[in-house]
Structures are given as C-alpha cells and as structure tokens.
Design a protein around this nucleic acid. Structure first.
Length: 262
DNA sequence: ATGGTCGGTCCCCGA
C-alpha cells in the first residue's frame, strides 16, 4: 500500500515546521506540493531529505513553485507543460516516475493558475493552461500505467464543493468554463479520488484566511488527486486531512490523500 | 459593511 498526498503549503519556508511534523506523523510515501514561493536554492532540502524523502522541484521567486517528495527512487520526467507559447515561465508543473517496487507510478504535481479576475487575460491563461494539461494527460494515459495527477487545480468542480455557490458563481474557481475544463480531464478517464469514495457534499480543502472562513467551515474543494484507470483500480481509501489547517499560522489549504494497493 | 488576512517583497501584488 502506498499513500499519496497533495498539499498547497503557501510558502514552503514559512511552513517547513508544519510540513516536517505532518510527514513524521502520517508518513505519506509520495507528496505533491504547491506554492513553494521560492527558488530551488531556497528550498529547505535537508529537512526533507533527513526524513528519508527524495525530492524534485521546480522553483520560482515569490510565486508558484511545485515539488514531489518520494520515499522511493524517483526520476524527473518533465519540469513544465509542453505546448506553451514560449512565455510559460511560471513554475506550475513537475512530473516524475517513481518505483515503489517492480511496478512504476507516475506522479504529477500541478498548480493550476487561479484565473481571477474573470473574464480577462489571467482567466484566458488558466483555460489555455488546462487545455495543455489535458493534452499531456491524454499522452500519459496512453502508457496505461498507474498515474496520479494531483495538486491545486483552482477549480471547484460542482456547487456541492463550495459553501456559497451563488456568491462564487462568477469567480474563476467556479465559473462554468473552469468546470467544463475540469470535466474535460475527467472525461479522458481520470478519477477524482476523494469524490469517488465520498459522495457527501460540503467537504473542503481550502478556506480563505479572511472573515473567519475556517471557523465557520466556509471553504471550497479545489485540491484534487486524479487517477488513471490503472491507479483507480487500486484505490483503497481517500480523504481530506483537516488537521494542519487548524494549527497556528497554517496554509490556507489542507492536505488531500489517497491510498493505492501497490 | 466595497471590508477582511496572509506571504513575500519592498513601499504593493497575488491569492
């Protein structure tokens, strides 16, 4: 059994204490991180490696930044999405092949653009980025291997995944175009691991820092683990770990995880 | 209630 988790840490340097405590407590095998907000040289590499994790990351000053942590041997396969117009310098994609044993697992950490304000240039960039992610996912699915594409999708898939659908209907996280692009990924044959095992509405992975959203449990489910059929066949459990969001100085996101029988 | 709160960087921006 291997456990795979995704967590938008909102600055890995300000969250390193919480991250290492959480790694020690849950011992996830593969961890997908987003919003590192630092370049590779600034990443607290030793703290992670001392816990027995291999590390690949794509960093950027101040913004974005994605990483994969693995307790098994890992080889980086891609550090950006193909098909950009050459101006795609944002650190939002990293892909690796991991070998937990005789089988391989391919893991991808994504930080999808937020896209606000919508409509506008940023929203167009988000939708184009999701188009390119879909093309990459299509190519990866052709390998017919266990594959997990996880991260902060900045898409709230349905009205069941947000505390106030009417209030959020024009936001880039909830707009119909964003939801259609997310369904485009699902329609390739990817499974939303949490939703597959949890039909109940109003389970969230993100709560805004403002206005006491966490205390009122007014959040959104925008962090997802999408599984290829070969991974979905082996899905044993999935959940949202709300504990880190309740700590002092938390990220505004909390981890989402799943267990695969591999 | 046109507010509110973070993190990083620098005198505001992105979320």
């Amino acid at each position: 059994m291997i456990r795979i988790a995704t967590w938008n840490v909102n600055s890995v340097r300000s969250r390193i204490g919480q991250l290492t405590s959480w790694l020690r407590a849950g011992k996830p095998d593969i961890v997908l991180l987003q919003e590192l907000k630092c370049v590779a040289d600034g990443f607290p590499r030793l703290e992670i490696e001392d816990l027995g994790y291999n590390l690949v990351l794509v960093g950027q000053k101040t913004y974005n930044g994605v990483a994969i942590l693995s307790r098994f041997p890992m080889t980086v396969e891609a550090e950006s999405l193909a098909g950009g117009d050459g101006s795609d310098v944002q650190a939002r994609y990293v892909e690796a092949v991991i070998e937990p044993g005789p089988r391989v697992v391919r893991a991808v950490s994504v930080y999808v653009p937020n896209g606000n304000p919508a409509p506008g240039e940023k929203f167009a960039y988000k939708l184009a980025w999701l188009d390119r992610l879909r093309e990459r996912a299509r190519a990866l699915l052709a390998y017919e291997e266990p594959l997990v594409i996880g991260g902060d999708y900045n898409v709230c898939p349905t009205d069941d995944d947000v505390y106030d659908p009417l209030g959020w209907k024009d936001d880039a996280l909830c707009r119909p175009e964003s939801r259609a692009h997310f369904r485009g990924l699902i329609n390739l044959g990817l499974l939303d691991a949490f939703r597959a095992l949890h039909p109940e509405p109003h389970r969230y992975s993100y709560w805004d820092y403002q206005s006491g959203r966490w205390q009122k449990d007014e959040g959104l489910r925008i962090d997802h683990l999408l599984l290829s059929p070969q991974a979905a066949d082996r899905l044993a459990a999935a959940d949202i770990d709300k504990t880190p969001r309740g700590l002092d100085k938390p990220s505004d996101h909390t981890p989402v995880w799943c267990d695969l029988e591999i």
